[in-house]
Design a binder for these strands. Structure first.
Lengths: 338, 338
DNA sequence: CTGTTAGCGCTTTCAG
DNA sequence: CTGAAAGCGCTAACAG
């Protein structure tokens, strides 16, 4: 069955192609009768304009791209949910790309997106990137870019984050309040500003509570979870093993749980754990993990709204602003009972 | 900065547009020197063909759509991961659409996709659909469609599922083996063939183990989790409350856990629970939930591979076949110790 | 081996 | 209020 197009509609109705086209756009400048004739036939024949033709003509795709490190992650899942909910509202389409923390993929995706496939881009950076200059390409092409969560602090565009410094501070303090003296910190990549902010909160909190900083308790993890598991086990086998762990990444907390189990360390008796995490399923969750939970869904919505706003107002360059949402500290058994 | 296009490349190199175009496609029929001159300049200027122009011309978008009920769900998260991994390999783009179990949205998405935006569609049906005729539209437009998990058994196209009957049978049997006599079944929507297959497995298992079928223990849930919570609580407050629950949907198991907690029922002592679930984080998981785990990632890969195969071979109509992968029964404390 | 040309389906001046 | 015509950027005959 051949697809129906403007030309055919025009032929059937004995009007010109441009008249038909206008019927869908310029509601003025066309007689009401003609318009309704056209629209009703279009509906009857189930006409939809060809997106590639109008995209080519108008240089608008009604599509955005979302570039994230991974999807098997509750934070990103919820963020995508938020993004898609706004996109549906605005009648936009959403393309997804996963970098799997691979910088070269991030560069490749961005390269591919600079030629009209999308009108705008939402990105959460991969962990192992140093040079962010590939992102400038989008700016050169007037494609608005909004960062969320894993932002580039130096980028001159909108960044949506959470209060990571404060969260790191709160998390650490929470462990201190439970009597922890030797608090370890697990983080992922020094190239991520959010990781740095969280660590700064941790350090400040230790300082304010007059606890010493022990380099051996600060563990930089990798994109490889087998390696990470080894690192965490080593941490726990140290002579002066920590009595608390603040993990800035959900997966690292999971690995810590597993490592404790293997080493027969009781949580929360021997060691207390708090982690950034967006696991929602409290009923199924191990009751010994306090969490810092980010408002992921809201972040997705916020970032998408800002982007769509820019697109709709043709304000090509997105303001150099930082939007900060607040995470929530969820205390659970691990720490609320001594 | 103006985007670079074929015409500009041609001008700079003093060749015709078609020569440039050919350099990227027909590696034959063009002199090696010209070709390399063109390609190197293209790289230097960071040229990328405009996808909307070539899409319009070739009627190929190098894009597929994935329509799923929701994303905040471990099964779908893993499936998308699998789909995207194949798409990356094949250099395809992936559009995502969430129906949130809303049939009207499913229809609207499919309507929008019949005019060239995508080359193919992967779908997992929304729960409340009866009439699947909207999907025929895609067939009429020669857009291949592959179902995964929530398939339409009557569709004449490829369907990728798991062995749901057998899984339902195994799950029920597992509870029987632990001594359960009054086994409830929670399911979601009679319109979903997979739900029906799972239930058939449940019924067959009861029958084979000479246990009576009690209609009051078979609960049809809804898309609304507050309602579902009420239904489950009612189930548990019945005079002859069940001593085992087989849930065919992860979220329903979570609600059961919560309801048990509220009603002070001990799991697994008072009641044992087994559920379809793709929660991966064993270390964090409550140790009292046995699960039927579907190979979601593999299903995504399988469905995507079949679709891309069809696209690449221009075999527009996808064979009327059913691909069945096997789920895994994961026994945990709830049932492995009496 | 290279160039000319028509046209994918749509939007948008500009004339009438 | 309606229509003719140009052209978005690219591809694919077809000539040369």
């Amino acid at each position: 069955m051949d697809p129906i197009n403007l030309k055919k509609l025009a032929e059937i109705l004995n009007v010109s192609v441009s008249t038909v086209s206008k019927a869908f756009r310029d509601s003025y400048d066309i007689s009401p009768e003609t318009k309704s004739r056209i629209l009703s036939l279009a509906k009857e024949l189930n006409y939809q304009p060809n997106p590639y033709a109008s995209g080519l003509r108008t240089q608008k795709s009604k599509t955005i791209a979302v570039i994230i490190p991974e999807i098997a992650n509750n934070f990103f899942t919820q963020a995508i949910d938020g993004i898609e909910s706004i996109a549906q509202e605005k009648n936009y389409h959403v393309l997804i790309y996963f970098t799997h923390e691979d910088y070269t993929k991030e560069v490749a995706f961005v390269q591919h997106l600079q030629h009209g496939r999308v009108d705008g881009v939402l990105i959460s950076l991969s962990g192992d990137a140093k040079d962010r200059s590939h992102l400038d390409l989008l700016g050169h092409r007037d494609i608005p870019l909004v960062f969320f969560d894993r932002v580039d602090d130096h980028a001159k565009t909108t960044r949506v984050t959470t209060n990571d410094f404060e969260s790191g501070y709160m998390a650490t303090q929470h462990l201190v309040e439970q009597g922890c003296k030797k608090i370890a910190h697990l983080f992922f990549s020094k190239d991520l500003s959010i990781a740095n902010h969280r660590m700064e909160g941790y350090l400040q909190s230790l300082h304010d509570h007059r606890l010493p900083v022990n380099e051996k308790l600060i563990v930089q993890c990798t994109a490889n979870h087998v390696t990470n598991y080894g690192l965490i086990k080593n941490l726990l086998k140290q002579k002066h093993r920590p009595d608390g762990i603040f993990s800035s990444f959900e997966k690292l907390a999971l690995l810590s749980f597993e490592a404790c189990e293997e080493l027969a360390l009781n949580i929360p008796r021997d060691i207390k754990i708090i982690s950034f995490s967006n696991i929602e399923t409290a009923a199924l969750l191990n009751p010994s993990l306090s969490t810092i939970t980010q408002p992921a869904f809201e972040m997705g919505k916020e970032a998408a709204s800002i982007l769509f706003n820019a697109l709709e107002n043709n304000s090509v360059s997105i303001a150099d602003q930082k939007v900060v949402l607040n995470s929530t500290l969820v205390k659970r058994k691990s720490t609320s009972r001594e």
